[in-house]
Design a protein around this nucleic acid. Structure first.
Lengths: 160, 160
DNA sequence: AAACTATACATCGTGAACGATCTAATAGCA
DNA sequence: TGCTATTAGATCGTTCACGATGTATAGTTT
């Protein structure tokens, strides 16, 4: 017993353009709800490590390259200081990293891993495999979705 | 000047499995950051309507079918009452909808659009078009990504 | 009827996300 | 030297998201 604003013909025309007001047809809701489902999987996997997904992302960045400025972490994760500062403080309280002002430019806060933060990389090795299993997709499928998303992201940021 | 834990050969083997610890290769981060970019586009488009993206999702659901229970809205959006109750209260305060207990079963709260909430559908017609333009993708591309994501979402929820 | 279970929401606490605004430090320049 | 602009973070207020828990109602069992 649904009430549509458009008649079926109009709706079909809009569907072809990908611009429907129907929830089930929107790419963005697919993105939103898939992200939520993915988050649920990660939460379960990360619980034993004691970190959240955004915190795990910060660790990924620092495992690739340690001793970054807050803004450099932000560039990689598309987050600004309003989000990162409290997040990093929580991680510092957990003993995963240290934050200290650079001597040569005291505006900068350098973030570096503690021994505990480094050691966690070993324990986190199982996480991507767990996600891979939960996804039930082939590596080729996953890579294909990923590359399409990255293309979409680039276009969205250009037009944002 | 990056420091990898794995040598290139190991990394390549893992890449093939889609289970790398490298940020740039993870589907999940592509999802996460693309969602954030999409959110940015929506925020701009929805600002003149005075609603947030999750509020817009609730409107989409109610425009398709009015007078739903809180839990029915939650099923469609994959959200629970802890998220929806305050969100719906804010929307009620904005005058977009009404919440009232069902007479026959007083556990249920029935959510129905006000005239203002219904009328907003007309003004929101431009939103999907705006997103479509910002995406810079063809309708076929968008539908393809969407369908891949929905498949992934179904598998993730099954294994969550 | 009393006791139990399930359902439908509400509440609480924590952790993001981000626009807007603030402060301190640095850089550029006359 | 001063003046301004820029940069790097921090802070504030609002909104989501969700696990855990509470509460009232409804249904079911004994």
């Amino acid at each position: 017993m649904y009430s549509f604003a458009m008649n079926p013909k109009q709706a079909s025309a809009r569907r072809k353009l990908g611009t429907s007001l129907l929830l089930g047809e929107q790419l963005c809701f697919a993105l939103y709800s898939t992200m939520a489902a993915m988050n649920k999987v990660y939460r379960r996997l990360l619980r034993e490590l004691g970190v959240t997904y955004p915190q795990y992302l910060v660790l990924l960045v620092l495992w690739e390259r340690d001793g970054l400025m807050v803004s450099e972490i932000g560039e990689r994760l598309f987050l600004d200081s309003a989000t990162l500062t409290p997040l990093l403080k929580r991680m510092e309280a957990l003993g995963l990293l240290r934050r200290k002002r650079a001597r040569d430019d005291e505006r900068q806060v350098i973030v570096s891993l503690t021994a505990q933060g480094l050691e966690m990389k070993r324990r986190a090795a199982a996480v991507p495999d767990g996600v891979f299993c939960a996804s039930g997709c082939t590596p080729v499928e996953l890579a294909s979705i990923r590359d399409h998303l990255l293309l979409l992201r680039a276009r969205l940021l250009k037009n944002a």
